[in-house]
């Protein structure tokens, strides 16, 4: 029996598949590919698998990880192609390999957030936004597990942030804390809306670009 890890991409319509539904989708992907992965015991056996760092619904990513265990020998070289035959649009397995590194070594997430400004980017936006995220403290409201709102200072959770002005958008590149606690990059929108309402974007789309360890190396 071995512990394996899949590296996969989530984009297009698959962005809207929720965490729970994604787990179900993967269960079926394995069965479609004729593979039977390790199940739990009991009256309601279910496949044992976990997604390393669930992606918020609506965001895209090229660096998602899923861990699972098998009872049969699987050839990691052919696994992605086999699974991809059964994938919904936007979901694509890139690689399969032995899950060597423990999840606790995952420290940061790199992401790109695109801020849309339908009426064109307001003058000086790049500079103002850079100033905003250079503040020592920046409080936003965040939904807690109990669905109420709590104040959180997001500055300690942001390791790097930079802004690039384009025609009708600003691209923000961030490196944020992954876990305990992590930061959803979309929350920079809440900070802008609260502190710089004149620079509020019309829409923000987020793409996760890399998972990193504490030293800033790629976690896989």
């Amino acid at each position: 029996m071995s512990k394996l890890r899949l590296l996969f991409e989530k984009d297009g319509p698959a962005r809207y598949i929720s965490h729970l539904d994604l787990m179900r989708t993967f269960q079926r992907l394995f069965l479609r590919g004729g593979m039977f992965i390790k199940h739990s015991k009991g009256f309601h056996p279910h496949p044992v698998m976990s997604i390393v760092l669930p992606l918020p619904v609506g965001q895209s990513s090229c660096c998602e990880l899923l861990d699972f265990e098998t009872e049969q020998e699987l050839d990691c070289a052919v696994l992605p192609a086999l699974l991809n035959e059964g994938c919904p649009e936007g979901l694509r397995v890139l690689e399969a390999y032995e899950a060597a590194r423990p999840v606790r070594e995952l420290a940061y997430v790199a992401a790109e957030a695109v801020l849309d400004y339908d009426g064109g980017v307001p003058g000086g936006a790049g500079a103002r936004l850079t100033e905003l995220f250079a503040r020592p403290v920046l409080i936003v409201q965040k939904k807690t597990k109990h669905k109420d709102l709590a104040d959180v200072d997001i500055i300690p959770l942001i390791r790097e942030i930079s802004f690039e002005e384009r025609a009708d958008e600003i691209a923000a590149r961030l490196v944020v804390s992954a876990q305990n606690p992590g930061l959803n990059p979309i929350l920079i929108g809440a900070a802008i809306e609260k502190e710089l309402p004149a620079y509020r974007p019309d829409f923000i789309s987020v793409r996760r670009t890399a998972l990193l360890d504490a030293a800033g190396g790629v976690f896989r």
């Binding site: 297009g12 319509p13 809207y16 619904v57 609506g58 059964g86 649009e89 936007g90 829409f203 789309s205």
Partner: peptide
């Protein structure tokens, strides 16, 4: 995907129902 659609989806319940792309 239609940009207008992309903008409203984060605000609705269970957006996966409105985007298609399912297996088969």
């Amino acid at each position: 995907m239609d940009k207008r659609l992309e903008r409203i989806l984060p605000r609705v319940q269970k957006p996966a129902r409105y985007v298609g792309g399912e297996y088969r």
